[in-house]
Design a binder for these strands. Structure first.
Lengths: 162, 162
DNA sequence: TTCCATGCAAATGATTTGCAAACAG
DNA sequence: CTGTTTGCAAATCATTTGCATGGAA
């Protein structure tokens, strides 16, 4: 006899604020953190609170509607595009950019096979089975900082850089 | 005429605590955070304070004696091996393991060429010049959690996982 | 009605920092 | 001596959480 105990039956209800937060995340390409989204939305959604942004971002992540790109300067940065793809983190200003690979799925496959071929065969099979997802961050200068020139001071490098 | 203004002439002085911290970091393979190092050292170095661990870890990073692997559950994890190489982050317990590739340098080269071949030629040249380093994190089950079986509950997945 | 969603503020946790004392060169 | 390193505690900063209220089904 199988007893399914539905202890946590979390039915989602509709919410305008939730929609707004997800909307911003899907529209922008800055890979924002919670505070950025909050600032962006505050004017148009007066009653909004920062805690709500945090709560919903975590919901989105659990539901697979959003992905975490990584931590930059201690702040978690999100992506409305959930398909795994590579990112560039600017070592000067901390901006996060998409790296426009032709086909993200192909890119991920090739990543996986680079890993596979770098491992011994035994270890290879072991690892293959265990790995769920990859996160590839490249560190360098974003397009803006590139233009500004390497000498421009002012911004500190992200403290999360290697 | 060249004038070198040595505004910040930070001469490093010798310190037993500093040595101890770096020593632990070089000896272990757990890719520890500051607290772990502190706990490890506290018995043998009674006067040690957590702030000192933080301060020295940051020094090591600036000097290239240590590298930041990434953030797991909000905690920064360090590596005494500074040569760039791939890591596995356990999605159950948050452990960080080295992935034993045959030759890290070769692996990094291949990563770079996967990226290069996924970009258009123009974009390729642009990106090549800009990227300083890569950080590749793989998420899955660490060796211990693999053995323990997928059913074992108890640990939450790292909240920094994608 | 009945839960879910939210605002608000307090709580948490990791990391940083200010300051005076201890210490290395 | 002089400047660096440290302990300690307070300060920061991002994120989470408790609780009472508002809102959706």
């Amino acid at each position: 006899m199988i007893i399914i105990i539905n202890m946590i039956n979390r039915e989602r209800k509709h919410s305008a604020k939730r929609d707004a937060i997800l909307g911003v995340l899907k529209e922008t390409d800055v890979h924002p953190g919670a505070q950025w989204i909050y600032n962006r939305l505050k004017p148009s959604v007066p009653g909004l609170s920062l805690g709500t942004v945090y709560r919903n971002l975590n919901l989105f992540r659990e539901e697979g509607l959003a992905a975490l790109v990584g931590t930059v300067n201690g702040e978690e940065r999100f992506d409305g595009v959930t398909e795994s793809h590579p990112h560039l983190v600017c070592r000067r200003c901390g901006a996060v950019e998409d790296i426009a690979v032709a086909d993200p799925a192909v890119f991920e496959e090739e990543l996986a096979s680079v890993l596979a071929s770098s491992l011994g065969e035994d270890e290879n099979r072991i690892r293959e089975a265990k790995i769920d997802f990859r996160r590839t961050l490249f560190y360098g200068l974003c397009t803006n900082c590139e233009k500004a020139g390497k000498e421009t001071p002012g911004d500190e490098p992200p403290r999360d850089a290697p």
